[in-house]
Structures are given as C-alpha cells and as structure tokens.
Design a protein around this nucleic acid. Sequence first.
RNA 1: GGAGAGGUGGCAGAGUGGUCGAAUGUACCUGACUCGAAAUCAGGCGUAGGUGCAAACCUACCGUGGGUUCAAAUCCCACCCUCUCCGCCA
Length: 428
Amino acid sequence: MLDIQLLRNDIKSVAARLSSRGFELDTAEFTRLEAERKTIQTLTQELQAKRNASSKQIGIAKSKGEDASAIMAEIAHLGDELKAAETALAALQAPLNALLMSIPNLPHESVAIGKSEEDNVEVSRIGTPRAFDFPVKDHVDLGEKLGLDFETASKIAGARFSLLRGNLAKLHRALAQFMLNTHTDAHQYTEVYVPYLVNAESMRGTGQLPKFEEDLFHVPRTDAEQLYLIPTAEVPVTNMVRGEIVPREQLPLKFVAHTPCFRSEAGAYGRDTRGMIRQHQFDKVELVQLVEPEHSYAALETLTGHAEAILQALGLPYRKMALCTKDMGFSAAKTYDLEVWLPAQNTYREISSCSNFEAFQTRRMQARFRGENGKPELLHSINGSGLAVGRTLVAILENYQQADGSVTIPEVLRPYMGGIDALVPTAS
RNA sequence: GGAGAGGUGGCAGAGUGGUCGAAUGUACCUGACUCGAAAUCAGGCGUAGGUGCAAACCUACCGUGGGUUCAAAUCCCACCCUCUCCGCCA
C-alpha cells in the first residue's frame, strides 16, 4: 500500500511512476473520491463534536440534578443527520481504500523502465556452463531412473505434483538442510518454523490479498475463519512483526524459514507442464529481513548475495537479473532474479527472486520501529528465495549428469547424503 | 468434545451508562537536588486521522464487527483470541 499522503500531495508524479510499470492510475477517480471524502469527513466530525459537547452538558446538568430537557431537545434531530453523514463517509472510504489497495508499489529510481521481461538487465553472470560430450537429458528423463515419479503423484493428488523416492528424496532434503545451515551459520539469520496456513489478515499484510486471491489455495472451515495455504514463507515470516513496534536495537531482523509453498497456478495453464519446474507444491528456503529504511537497499544487495552464495557453493552457473519496471511483482520496489543454468533447456531459469518492498508491506501491516525522535516509523521489508529447493534439485540433476545417467553429488552436499558421491540409475 | 475464566495504554492493574482517552503503580524521557549515581521531588510520556502557514483545535480507537442511547470501556448480539480443568490425541 502506498502512502496516501503521496497521492494527495503529488498524484501526477505518482501516476507517472506507476505507468512505467504498466499501471494506469485513475487520477480523476481518486481526486473526486478524495475531495468528497474531505467534505464529508469534516462535516461528520463537526456533527460528532456538537453531539459530544451537548452530551457532556447533559451529563453535567444531570449530575447537578438540573433539568436537561432543553439541551436534549436541541440535539434531538442530530441523530439522523449524523447517521447519514457517517454512512456517506463509510460509502466513500470503502472505494477509496479499495483503490489504494489495488495500486502497486512505486519502482525505485534505479529500476530500468521496460515493457516486458526482454528489458530486464543482466547484472552479472557467474560460472561457466559445462560442455557436455554426450547428449544432455532433462531432469524428467534423468529422474525417471533416479526416483522422480510424476505418475504416482498424479494418482495421489493430480497434475503439478511430484513424488521423490530414495536418494533423490534425500538429496532434496539435503539441499534444504544445506541452505538452512549456511544461512543460519554463515549469514546469521534466525531460523524460524512457521504455520503453513494463515488467515486473510496476513495475506493482506504481504499483498497477496485482495488482488491475487485466485493464486491461492483456500481452506474453508465450517466453524472458523477461512485459512489459506501459504504461497511462500514470506507471508508468515514477514507477518511476525505485523502490528509490532520493534525496539531499534533489535534491528535488523533476519529470518530464514524452510517451508512448502502452495500455488494454484491459475494463470499458468499449459506453461511448464513438463517436470517439476512449476508445481502446486514446492519447498523453498526463504530469507526475510526487516530493516530501517536507510539500510534497505544495502540489505537487498547483501540478501541477494546470500542467495548467490548457495548457487556458488553448489557450483551452479547462474546470472543475476535486475528486473525492469514491467516485470516486477505488485509489491516490489526493486527486484533481482537469480537464474540458474539449465543445460537441457539451454537457458537460464529463475531460481530465486529477491526484492525490496520498502514500506509497501509494512504500511499495510503497521510493522514499525521507534526512530531516533522516539516516533514510530515504518520498517522496510526485504525478502528472497535462498533458494527454491525443487528447482535447485532440477539444476543439480541437469548440470551434474553423467553419460551413464548417473548424477554426481556436489561436494558440499555429501555430508548430508551419508557420504555417497552420486545418484545411480536403477537397472530397469 | 465438555465445563469455566478472561481480553483496558510498553508492562501490571482500576474502572458496570455521563466533565473517561481512561485512576494508580511500574518502565521510560526531561528538570531539580548530587562531585556523580541511587533515593527523593516536579513535569512529561499511546496510536491513527482531519482542519490549519502555524499555534492550536477537532474526530476515532478500551479484542473485532454490529446494536440500544442525547451519551457506551461500561448494556445487548455475533464473532475472534487467550488461559484453566476434564476427555481425546501425533
């Protein structure tokens, strides 16, 4: 959510910055609603003030045993008038608030203006894709004999689910463990274990609601509030500070969580249907930081570096992309995507997305700290995948495959794998 | 699942219809005393919003949402959450 003051004071430049990301702000509508709101709010408050003053007089008169019927007669008509004003005000504030909630974040000034993902800027390219002297297989073909089973998953649940067996499942677990240990030990994040089902308020806090309801899995309950399956650990972790005023000396807050993520992929029919690139359920290790505003862009750089450190330790070639205005998510002010090399697709594919949301999320959730002057100020939130576990597994399979269909296990993962150095295909 | 208790300011805790945005304590800030500190004394100390150049004034908020009333922290209804005991349970 943007600061409404910004819209009141300088809606033209806000609209200009928003149009760079393809969002056309209805400035006429906002200005109209806002002008009406001002009039009606002032009127409402005047009526309330009158009522309060008179009620006080009645109270004083009665406590002295005097007759208050004169004052009471004077404001007898006030009730209906006030009720009408309050109703009118509420009827204005609802659409005003809905409009405000539907406006995406302003892109940071360093973000390239673009029309599509074609305009994203490559910041760096690390590692060299390996030269293969045999025809490369993709992770589906490789996985067939290594324990990757889509048929059974689809029998159990349906399309866009996967099932892992044996050492492949263990490798998946090893990746998550390795990432968690690296972030807690080397990068000083606090590990948290969080709910995978959250309430609507939390979804509003991080920006999934009200606009992206169709992307979420719902869990209706007969005798209780509806819950949602988390699409990313960003939701429960960032909402830890919802409504809190964090003591300044505790900042920055740095959390890491390993959770499954659930996405309906409603708008993705037909895209990435092969393999485990795009699933309804996948695991992710998520990094979240809550920092003072002046440090948030530095924090975005270091957090992105923490995600990169995993790719580097695993020896996976990747590139770092600075997303252009059009390709960024709704809540982000600036985003880096990390894209890992997938030899079978002969391309780089997103494996991590690291964003600075500035105060966009924390304003919605009123997550604050006490600034130098003692006044509460909004925190900035930053998060990023460090990394998506399923896609990392895919990258390992494809980049570390051997001619015989086996897959070498990267050095750093072997301690988590009981010392074995390769996944070996089954005979059949 | 059954029975009960309760949600008030950073914390504790009073307040059952009227000068209550809320006593008191504590924490915190400022000042006085002190060489300094402690103790003591005095003052200050919630959040959001509106009008205004400002000073200031006004409005809302006592778990959430409705309702009754001239007036609600206080009465009524619904919901959410927490705690205790019993039962069940990974």
